[in-house]
Nucleic acid binder design. Structure first.
Lengths: 249, 249
DNA sequence: AATGGCTTGATGGTCTGACCAATTTGCCCT
DNA sequence: AGGGCAAATTGGTCAGACCATCAAGCCATT
């Protein structure tokens, strides 16, 4: 009972000044802004904590968190390195729980559909010649992978990200990349189904054609169709695979 | 069983036997398996590290990492609690957006438009009676704030978030919340323009009407119009208010 | 009896400083 | 020149201490 209609002024918007937390955000911004690029070696802990003016303990909590979500990689006696963006959040541990929650997956897939659909539309409006070529290139590469019997997961990812690039909205691009990373495992399983990769290629081709002809509406439709089919396949996999979770890697 | 003696065991499977990492896995499994349910208070650090047989430092690194990815929530003097699943990945998604630091305001606003437009459409399809009431409530509250001459920033935020709630997609909801937080200062300035709040009220009303009548198309259109007007106003403010890109912390 | 303030204990946050373990580097001895 | 040992570097771990905050209980005033 009791409706808290006594709308208080909502003071104190909880600004927890945790040293570790601010260090965490600080470090993340380094990685994301490109101050520290993928493959870079970041300063040693003992040096970093002095720069930040905090104890090594506090710094390490932040570093460890970043390592566990796949942004950093530490090697004793060697140093700590920045991981490529594509590996963010791809730590197997995260799949453990993401995989057990069906609802979450559905939300992720829906979010992805919404974002990528609009991104495809924007790309159709804004893509430059070079960007179109980049998109086409991923399709070509996918065909090659297919012929060689290699995995097309990465090329598939590249296709969608180059479209996001062509949409010229960094915010949305990053969001899409994150969502795809979250789904990575299922995408992998989906692409492992025999006939699927070939269908994907032709769908990618259709999406590309729509974007290349600068037809936003067609691009949105094509992308939507593609992602909806993916969603159905993934749900089938999840349903079927709902028993023995493989401990891959 | 620790043989740190001289060379011998040629095995050494190189499994990153990092204490922190195994603690992390251990703790995650507790949360995932339901040993610790959402809302539960987990044992104090000083107790946990004894159970696990590791130092508090190592445990804290794991604990902190889990907190930073939204699985746990620590409160000084109170304890550490398990977060609901819906919050697990909210922070990572957050980084994806904040990550684009140089992402211009324009990108953010565009991203917001895209997300909220679709969210409005989904809300029109999915909103329950209670959720509709919640939306309507924010409009009423905004009118009250207006009469009292109070700031409507918070109610404005509430309006959009209740719509996001009604769309039933936690992932997108979190994204919208973040984007709005990023724009907060500009939104504040926008709402400070004399005639604006009244216009906002009527626009909110229109959006609500569309959602309440379960008309996704109308809802999308209404939301789009509302946000585009906001975007224009904000850009005017920015243009007028042009100065240096503060390098605040 | 009810209220408000004070004390105390529990708990997370932070720091210091030390040592261990793995890796790299480079010098020394053969 | 080559092999191997030792120091330096760097992340991993530990112990113990202190602070800030919150909850609960005690006590005095009303």
């Amino acid at each position: 009972m009791k409706s808290k209609s006594s709308a208080a002024k909502t003071v104190t918007p909880l600004v927890r000044t945790t040293l570790t937390e601010s260090a965490f955000e600080h470090l993340i911004s380094y990685v994301v802004n490109g101050t520290w690029k993928a493959g870079d070696r970041i300063p040693p802990e003992r040096e970093l904590c002095q720069q930040l003016g905090i104890a090594r303990t506090s710094l390490r909590e932040a570093l460890k968190a970043m390592e566990l979500i796949g942004m950093l990689d530490s090697r004793v006696g060697d140093g700590t390195f920045v991981c490529p963006r594509s590996e963010f959040l791809s730590r197997p541990l995260l799949w453990a729980f993401t995989g057990t929650d069906h609802a979450e997956l559905q939300d992720i897939m829906e979010a992805r559909l919404i974002l990528e659909r609009d991104l495809a539309g924007l790309a159709a409006e804004r893509a430059s010649v070079a960007e179109l070529a980049a998109i086409a290139d991923t399709i070509t590469k996918m065909k090659i992978c297919l012929d060689r019997g290699e995995s097309v997961l990465e090329v598939d990812m590249a296709f969608h990200l180059t479209i996001a690039d062509a949409a010229h909205n960094g915010v949305l691009r990053n969001a899409v990349q994150l969502l795809r990373n979250l789904m990575r495992q299922w995408l992998y399983l989906k692409l492992a189904i025999p006939t699927v990769p070939h269908r994907v290629v032709s769908q990618h081709q259709a999406i590309y054609d729509a974007i290349a002809s600068h037809n936003p509406d067609a691009a949105r439709k094509a992308m939507e169709g593609h992602l909806e089919e993916t969603a159905h396949l993934v749900f089938d996999i999840v349903k079927r695979d709902r028993r023995s979770p493989k401990s891959s890697t």
